[in-house]
């Protein structure tokens, strides 16, 4: 199937794995989730015909499996209370040079599952706000606010992991 281009699932395997890895932070668990998701998708009697719907359907299967596995019976694990932004994001200054694979990976693992969820949906799975909103069954505005809070939390986590920088950084690049 690798070379015939007919398989609809295969092109998404990489993103599904990346999404699962971001949600769980655990390679073995991510592997299990993608495997379970693939089995369910392959065994499904009717898969969505439309490609975008098919993609959303796949990620929904995987996300639901992750909720089942991570929440241990608590369905609200990935729910946020959607409170308004309180802190001023401008007060959170993170040097661009501190944002790299290592710090982002560490930051992601320290986020709440709900924050990892929305970041992974948009930045890793590649869903638009409206697609993510449909998948989560919330308004687009809720996706916007959740995502902005999640990214702020991620930047805060990165900042905390980088209290001491090894080289001096310019603090005002545009001064």
């Amino acid at each position: 199937m690798a070379g015939d281009g007919n398989n609809r699932l295969e092109p998404y395997m990489g993103r599904l794995f990346g999404f699962a890895l971001s949600l769980t932070g655990n390679r073995d668990l991510a592997l299990e989730l993608v495997q379970d998701c693939s089995v369910k998708a392959l065994a499904a009697r009717q898969a969505p015909v439309d490609q975008a719907a098919f993609r959303a359907w796949l990620f929904r299967i995987l996300r639901n499996a992750a909720i089942d596995r991570l929440s241990n019976g608590n369905p609200t694990l990935l729910c946020l209370d959607d409170e308004p932004e309180t802190a001023d994001p401008a007060s959170l200054r993170v040097e661009e040079s501190l944002i790299n694979q290592l710090t982002v990976r560490a930051g992601m693992t320290s986020l709440s599952p709900a924050h990892r969820d929305i970041i992974a949906l948009v930045d890793i799975a590649g869903f638009s706000y409206s697609e993510a909103a449909a998948l989560l069954e919330v308004p687009v505005g809720t996706v916007m606010s959740r995502l902005s809070r999640a990214r702020r939390a991620l930047l805060a986590a990165i900042s905390e992991h980088n209290v001491h920088s090894l080289v001096p950084h310019r603090t005002a690049r545009r001064a």
Binding site: L9, F17, S22, A120
Partner: peptide, 23 residues
């Protein structure tokens, strides 16, 4: 950077799963 994180190489364990799927 987050997007790059999501492009981890596909583990070999997953590569064979699709091979018996119907076209």
């Amino acid at each position: 950077t987050v997007r790059e994180q999501g492009q981890a190489p596909l583990p070999s364990e997953l590569a064979g799963l699709c091979r018996t799927a119907p076209p």
